[in-house]
């Protein structure tokens, strides 16, 4: 299956989903006007990966800011991964946050707390904010 790459912008994440390395990376800001539309190909890719590749999958997420509708879309992604884990798949989510960025850390905790797959929070040094 094909890999998925989306270039980042000031308000949308850089997306790099790789079916050969089984690694999905999302990085940057996420506050598009239409989050559902932005996340749709990401969800479709994951569904296809689960069906066709079905290997242990790692997802790395490093955000600076996400709006409320993007939060909801992350919940959709994690629900897909949760189901995959429960059906015998293996998932690890790494949620990165900058030192002192309680907002992003808490956003991750609230999304991930009930999930059945493995997840870790990883602190990284502060960078210049909002410049993805």
């Amino acid at each position: 299956m094909e890999n998925l790459y989306i270039e980042g912008s000031k308000f949308t994440m850089e997306v790099n989903y790789n079916a050969e390395t089984n690694l999905c990376i999302m990085k940057g800001n996420s506050y598009p006007e239409d989050a559902i539309n932005f996340f749709e190909p990401l969800n479709e890719w994951l569904e296809q990966y689960i069906e066709e590749i079905n290997k242990p999958l790692t997802m790395e997420i490093q955000l600076y800011y996400l709006n409320s509708s993007s939060s909801k879309c992350f919940m959709d992604i994690f629900d897909i991964l949760d189901e995959y884990q429960e059906d015998g798949g293996s998932v690890l989510v790494k949620w990165f946050y900058e030192r002192n960025d309680d907002e992003i850390r808490e956003a991750g905790e609230e999304l991930l707390e009930d999930m059945s797959f493995k997840f870790e929070y990883i602190e990284i040094p502060e960078s210049s904010l909002y410049e993805a």
Partner: peptide, 29 residues
């Protein structure tokens, strides 16, 4: 939103800036 964040960036812990940015984006959207 970026202008707002830059205006507030003298806030040493960035806490208020992050909240401001977030509230602004939600109101504007």
């Amino acid at each position: 939103a970026e202008m707002l964040a830059n205006n507030l960036s003298n806030d040493p812990r960035q806490k208020t800036t992050k909240k401001m940015f977030s509230i602004f984006v939600e109101l504007a959207q």
